[in-house]
Amino acid sequence: MVTLLWILAVVLVIAGIVGIIRGQLLWGIVLIIVGLLVGPGGVSVFN
């Protein structure tokens, strides 16, 4: 489960960075924040 959370968090953060690069600033920031919240090091929504 922890590995899945890490993978999901990494994918969300990368998608957020790509969104910011493409000019979708708000969507990119939202994806990065969600990725940090989902990750095991953050405030996991699954705990």
Rank of each mutant, 00 (worst) to 15 (best):
L5F: 13
R22G: 05
L5Q: 09
L26S: 10
V2N: 12
F46N: 09
G42F: 00
L37C: 13
G23A: 01
I29R: 11
M1F: 05
V11M: 07
V34F: 15
L8Q: 08
I17W: 06
L31H: 07
G23W: 01
L31I: 05
G35F: 07
L37E: 14
I14T: 04
I33L: 15
V10G: 09
W27K: 15
A9K: 01
L37M: 15
W27G: 09
I21C: 03
G41Q: 09
G41S: 10
V30M: 14
V34H: 09
I14P: 09
G42P: 09
I32C: 08
L8V: 12
A15V: 06
V13Q: 03
L26N: 12
N47S: 10
I7P: 14
G41Y: 02
A15F: 05
G16K: 00
W6P: 09
I29M: 14
L31S: 07
L4H: 14
V45S: 13
I32E: 06
G19N: 04
G23Q: 00
T3N: 12
L25K: 14
W6N: 11
I32T: 06
M1H: 10
F46L: 15
L4G: 13
V43L: 15
W6E: 09
L31F: 13
G42V: 00
I32S: 04
V43K: 08
V18E: 00
G39W: 01
I29Y: 11
I20N: 01
W27S: 11
L12T: 02
G19L: 02
G23N: 01
W27V: 13
N47K: 11
T3A: 13
L8D: 08
L31W: 10
V11L: 12
I7A: 03
G35Q: 01
A9Q: 03
L26R: 15
V34Y: 14
V43Y: 03
V30C: 06
G35H: 02
L26V: 15
L5N: 07
V30D: 02
R22V: 05
G39L: 02
Q24Y: 07
V18A: 07
P40H: 00
I14F: 09
A9C: 13
G23Y: 02
I32G: 06
V18S: 03
I21F: 08
I21K: 07
G35T: 02
L26E: 14
G35R: 00
G19P: 07
M1P: 05
V45F: 13
G16S: 03
G28E: 00
P40D: 03
L8G: 08
M1R: 06
V30T: 12
S44E: 08
G41M: 11
L26Y: 15
W27C: 06
I21D: 00
V10T: 07
